[in-house]
Design a protein around this nucleic acid. Sequence first.
RNA 1: GCGCCCGUAGCUCAGUCGGAUAGAGCAUCAGAUUCCUAAUCUGGAGGCCACAGGUUCGAAUCCUGUCGGGCGCACCA
Length: 582
Amino acid sequence: MSEILPIHAAFAAHVNDALDRLETAGTLPIDSSRKNVTVEPPRDPSHGDLSTNAAMVLAKQAKTNPRELAQALVSELGKVPTIESTEIAGPGFINLRIADAAWRDEIRVIAEQGDAYGRSAMGGGAVVNVEYVSANPTGPMHMGHCRGAVVGDALASLLEFAGHDVVREYYVNDAGGQVDVLARSVHLRYLQALGRDTGAIPEGLYPGDYLIPVGEALATELGDRFTDEPEAEWLPVFRAHSVDAMMGLIKADLALLGIHHDLFSSEAALQAAGKPEAAEVWLRKHDLVYDGVLEAPKGKAPPEDWEAVELPLFRSTKFGDDQDRPIKKSDGKWTYFGADLAYHMQKAEKADALIDIWGADHAGTVKRIKAAVAALAEGEDKTIPFDVKLVQMVQLMRDGEPLKMSKRSGNFITLAEMVEEVGKDVVRFTMLTRKPEAQMEFDFAKVVEASKDNPVFYVQYAHARVFSTLRKAAEEGLKPDIAGIDLLGSAELAMVQQAAQFPRIVEAAAQAREPHRIAFFLYDLAGAFHSYWNAGNDDPQKRFIVSQNDALTGGRLFLATQIGQVIRNGLALLGVKAVEEL
RNA sequence: GCGCCCGUAGCUCAGUCGGAUAGAGCAUCAGAUUCCUAAUCUGGAGGCCACAGGUUCGAAUCCUGUCGGGCGCACCA
């Protein structure tokens, strides 16, 4: 027990030790299952500092009633010196009151651990691959990509902080038909750059102006080599150049949000390496791919040109999908799914767990890709934890009115425009103040208001206040002093209790893969700080800087510094700047 | 027709792998500024947790059904 544990972890350990002793004493059966035992702060503070449901959960296993077991547990917990009082309540909750000294110690723990406070070894170094964004390389990023990008990035940071070895991956869909369209669109711009009159941009090509510089660059680089050649001559060249250029745009857009991937995996490269073929061989060997004919689509409007063709089909129905899915098209090329299946197999080789962040419009393909990973796991006789997080649509609003967006008319808001208008921190924080699977509204007017309706400023302001206080104190020759924390009273320690939840919030959020919990925690902590601060308006004795009392001031400044530290650690996970001044 | 997600205060949303009297912000009402930034704080009012069944010591939370909103339902990506 030489290792310093954050306070909640320490008390969870105390409860666990007590249960161990009950096992030894025969009160509990050996190896009782404790997976539902929780040790957490009760909703109602009058119930104490911490509460455990252990007696209720384990009563059945102990073949006794909850209150009786609680009694036994309480007498064990009474031996822990930092537990000041225990109480059995309701159906068998055990409420614990913790000595002030333990909360004071937590301030020291925060100070000692600094930027590492809240970090957890929970992940055990497991390699987790988080694939997010993966926007098609056909243009700059628009608003629709934004939420998934932020959620994926924050989740990756969170998992890292919770002890996982995270790979941030971007899947580049550079092999499909839309890349041919891109290449043709760029070729047109190339001809224009060389002074050709191309007329209006034909239907079906990308009309965006962002392709003009790409065409110009190619004109400069290639001269007029490809002006009158047949398409087959120039298409591969233009495809490669265009994808590079688009990925450049996308990376620049992502950088505006502070997002950087570790790995960009190319679909074309995957195919060139023969991965889909290898996957097909493996699947056929396990009788998971067969040649068959699909039923006619049951959608509202069956395509007129639909006809029954025999295709290689993956048995996704065996793993819960609604129908088997083709991995190759009738022209012999791989379907998107066929390549994606091979891609996930490739990812699974190098990771202990996979997470995909997708837009809600891909919800229909979740089952098949989960089926693919399940098939691989079964065939290889191992478990491959695989989560697909669906991020719901964002409804953009301006002054309470929905903004209509249409990709075809080119009337869509780009990510860059959005970041420029409201700023990176606002975009990131706002996207993280909703659980991702719920739809959300994003109102430009409200979000730039920089005040009331805007949690990001509220949290940043709390952090800034810590620093403004320290600056003010420094002018008077005062500075934080750890010796002063023994003088802190219950109002200050209440704030510590709130901040001390950070480590367990990190673990819970990482486990649930829900970075938004960090955002809400920060909002609450900032609220506690503002509230404490304001008490000083009425009573000068409650300010951080107390005149004529340098010792208490030192203690309070030390506390403020540590609250700032926790806010900073949380904001770092969200990728939001912890400003020292507003 | 089928699948997935959502439905909590007037509005925007939290709600800890089922826990004690369901929370916050906005809006609204009543207050606080010779003060370390009031971009803040204190208090009031506001709830059939969409609806109906079920599971159990206990359900906003899990299961079934209904209604409402969103997204999908190609050999596209």
